[in-house]
Amino acid sequence: MADRWETEQKRPRVELPKCSSCHRERTLNDAYDYNPLQVVTGQPLGWYSGDDGEVCPECMTKMLRG
């Protein structure tokens, strides 16, 4: 139904960024971007966005811990 409404309103459908590891979509609750200082200070990690894709905080934590 949402696709039909967007087509009728002639508005483009917005693609949300997805994690390249687990394919979870980024939401409005995922407001923070990744910053290396988060690792050093022990703060929760944010989303990594780069030329090689997006990575959610959970997958970034797994990768950093090995």
Rank of each mutant, 00 (worst) to 15 (best):
P57Y: 03
M1F: 04
K62D: 04
P36W: 14
R26M: 02
V55D: 02
D30T: 03
Y32E: 14
R26D: 00
K62V: 09
G53Y: 05
T7Y: 01
D33M: 14
V39H: 12
S20C: 11
D30L: 01
H23K: 14
W47K: 15
K10N: 07
S21Y: 13
P36F: 10
H23V: 05
Y34H: 15
L28S: 08
D33Q: 14
T27S: 12
K18D: 13
M60R: 13
C19G: 08
S49V: 08
C22S: 11
E58V: 11
M1T: 07
E6W: 08
Y34T: 03
T7C: 02
W47D: 05
E58Q: 11
Y32I: 13
E15R: 10
P36Q: 09
G53M: 08
R11F: 00
C56S: 04
V55K: 10
G66M: 10
W5N: 06
G50I: 10
E15N: 04
N29G: 15
P44H: 07
Y34F: 15
R65C: 12
C56D: 07
A31Q: 11
D52K: 14
E25V: 13
Q43S: 14
G46S: 10
R11V: 00
R4P: 01
E6V: 04
R4T: 05
Y48I: 14
E25Y: 03
V40W: 03
Q43L: 13
G66V: 06
S20G: 15
N35Q: 12
E6K: 09
G46E: 12
L45H: 13
W5L: 13
S21T: 10
V55A: 07
P12W: 03
P17M: 04
C22L: 11
